[in-house]
Amino acid sequence: MSFPVEKSSSEWRAQLNPEQFKILRQKGTEPAFSGKYDKHYPAEGVYACAACAAPLYTANQKFKSGCGWPAFFDTIPGAVTRHTDRTLGMERTEIVCSNCGGHLGHVFKGEGFPTPTDERHCVNSVSLKFQDSDPVKESKA
C-alpha cells in the first residue's frame, strides 16, 4: 500500500522518538492506561497523526470507553485507512493514517457503546498529537 507521505525507515527513525517509531512504523501497542490522551477530553480541537500531522479525529468524536486507550467513534472523512490484521491468531481491523500509513490502532464494532456509529477506534496516544484549533472547521469558514 502506498501513501502520499513515503519515507524510508531511517528517515522515520530520525524524525520519531523510539516509542513513536515502534508503534507508528512497527505496529506496536502502548500499555493500557499509559497514554497521555486516554483521559484527555477537550471541548474542541483535533487529534492529528504524530508522524505527519495529518488531522485524524476531532475532539467531539472522542468518547469515554474505559478501554485504556483513546477511543473515537468516527474519523475526519478520508483520514484513516482500514485493513484486515490477522496477527495474534485472530482477525481484527487495523487503522492507519491515510497520509503516511502510520499505525494508529484497531477498530471494534458492535460493542454497544451509545455512539452514532457503534464503533470504537482504539488508538495509541503515541500515534496522536493534539492541536487546540480545528483545521477542518477553519478550512470551511
Rank of each mutant, 00 (worst) to 15 (best):
A43M: 07
N17E: 14
E19W: 06
G112L: 09
G112N: 13
I95Y: 07
C97P: 04
N17Q: 07
F108G: 13
T117Q: 05
T75G: 05
E119C: 14
A51P: 03
C122R: 13
S9T: 09
M1N: 10
G78D: 06
D74K: 09
L16I: 02
P4I: 08
E30N: 03
Q26G: 02
Y37W: 00
T115M: 07
G68N: 12
P31V: 02
A59T: 09
S125F: 02
S133Q: 14
P18D: 15
T93M: 05
K137C: 07
P70D: 09
T87N: 13
Y37P: 13
V126A: 11
L56R: 07
D118H: 14
K22S: 15
C122G: 10
I76F: 08
S8V: 11
S133K: 15
E119N: 15
K129Q: 13
R92Q: 12
G66L: 03
S2K: 12
K140V: 01
E44Y: 03
T84I: 13
T75W: 12
S125I: 00
F21R: 09
P135T: 03
G89T: 00
E119I: 00
P18V: 10
S125C: 05
G112C: 05
F113L: 01
R86D: 02
P31R: 05
K62H: 11
S127N: 05
K64T: 12
K22Y: 08
V96L: 13
K137Y: 10
F130K: 04
G45W: 08
E94A: 13
A79F: 13
D118Q: 07
S127F: 01
A71Q: 12
K39D: 13
F63P: 04
F73C: 08
W69Y: 11
R120Y: 13
C67W: 08
C122N: 13
P18N: 06
E94I: 01
Y47S: 12
E119L: 09
N60D: 14
A14K: 15
R92I: 12
Y37K: 04
W69A: 11
M1C: 04
A71Y: 06
D85E: 08
V96Q: 12
G45P: 13
A59H: 06
A14H: 05
T93K: 01
P31M: 03
P42Y: 02
S139A: 14
T81Q: 12
C67Y: 14
S127W: 02
A71K: 14
T75N: 09
S98F: 04
D74N: 09
K39R: 14
K64N: 15
A53K: 14
P18R: 03
K39H: 12
K36L: 08
P4Y: 04
K39L: 01
A50P: 06
H103I: 02
C122I: 00
F3Q: 06
S127K: 02
G102L: 08
G28P: 07
N17R: 00
H103K: 01
F73R: 05
T84M: 03
F130W: 02
Y41I: 15
R92T: 11
P18G: 06
P18Q: 06
